[in-house]
């Protein structure tokens, strides 16, 4: 029974990892950008949630109303002012600039909030659970998973059914020709980053509600998100969800065997997929 429980918990936490991964996958899909500061932005969103909940007395989930737009605007500005200047065939500039950004964010947060672990207080939601036979499923992890599924469905819908999504796909296919159609590449890229950070905001709030977080926690989240992306297959959002679940289950099983093996088991699952199917389990099918 402990095993079944470990697996179910793993599946549910996989939703959180999928949230980490979705924003990463989105910007890679649109502009081939890998944002090394992605994890630090998730932690930043969690801290933003902390500020909103403590100063305004909001519930963490209500805080999303503020944190999502703030992060989205931050994403737009970040891309428009800074990252668009680094876009090109050379991968080094965006990589190093986002790496520098990561160091700045980590230390900025450290300066502002100290190294103490923090947590968002979700009140009764934290302990509420649904009895399922002999198992108790926590309401919060379940909610997190449902939200992750909804976010991915939403992103999928934006991608394939809206003018913005069309602009994303066209610019991703051929940025030059997209410009000839009257699409401003800089604006399209900035919109993609805004959307990515909107997802980051949701991920950050759920991270902060579920576990404690501190300024140094960004890289681990980046790595989990990245592993989910690669396991699921590049450019496939639903694959990303499966990737997150596999990662979560592997970590759950690892932790069940030995507490020190939780993360190690997740990394091993990732390396195993990389060894057997380097393109991921569900690579994007081209039209």
């Amino acid at each position: 029974m402990v095993w079944v429980n470990a697996i179910i918990q793993g599946v549910l936490i996989g939703g959180l990892y999928a949230l980490f991964a979705a924003g990463l996958s989105l910007i890679f899909g649109v502009m081939r950008l890998v944002n090394i500061a992605h994890g630090d932005l998730i932690v930043l969103a969690a801290f933003l949630g902390l500020v909103v909940t403590t100063t305004l007395g909001f519930h963490p989930l209500t805080a999303l109303v503020i944190v999502i737009p703030v992060m989205a605007i931050l994403g737009y500005v970040l891309q428009y002012v800074l990252l668009n200047r680094t876009m090109g065939s050379d991968i080094l500039p965006p990589l190093l600039v986002t790496f520098g950004l990561s160091v700045i964010l980590q230390n900025g947060l450290l300066e502002a909030f100290s190294a103490d672990p923090q947590k968002l207080n979700a009140g009764a939601l934290e302990t509420a659970s649904l009895p399922m036979g002999s198992l108790n499923i926590g309401l919060l992890p379940l909610l997190m998973f449902v939200v992750a599924v909804c976010v991915i469905a939403g992103l999928q819908w934006i991608f394939y059914n809206t003018a913005l999504g069309r602009a994303f796909r066209a610019t991703s296919d051929n940025a030059e020709i997209a410009q000839l159609m009257g699409l401003n590449k800089n604006h399209v890229f900035s919109m993609a980053m805004a959307l990515s950070l909107a997802v980051v905001a949701i991920a950050g709030i759920f991270l902060g509600t579920r576990t404690s977080f501190d300024p140094a926690g960004g890289p681990a989240r980046l790595i989990f998100g990245f592993e989910a992306v690669i396991i699921g297959g590049l450019g496939n959002l639903w694959g990303t969800l499966i990737g997150g679940i596999i990662l979560g289950v592997a970590q759950g099983i690892g932790a069940q065997i030995h507490p020190g093996w939780q993360q190690l088991a997740g990394h091993c699952a990732f390396l195993l997929v990389l060894a057997i199917r380097p393109t991921g389990l569900f690579p994007k099918v081209s039209h």
Partner: peptide
């Protein structure tokens, strides 16, 4: 080496974590 560009970079980081 199955990963490219920036994904290679994060891959190296995973190895360091392992």
């Amino acid at each position: 080496f199955r990963l490219h560009g920036a994904y290679f970079a994060i891959g190296t980081w995973v190895i360091a974590e392992v």
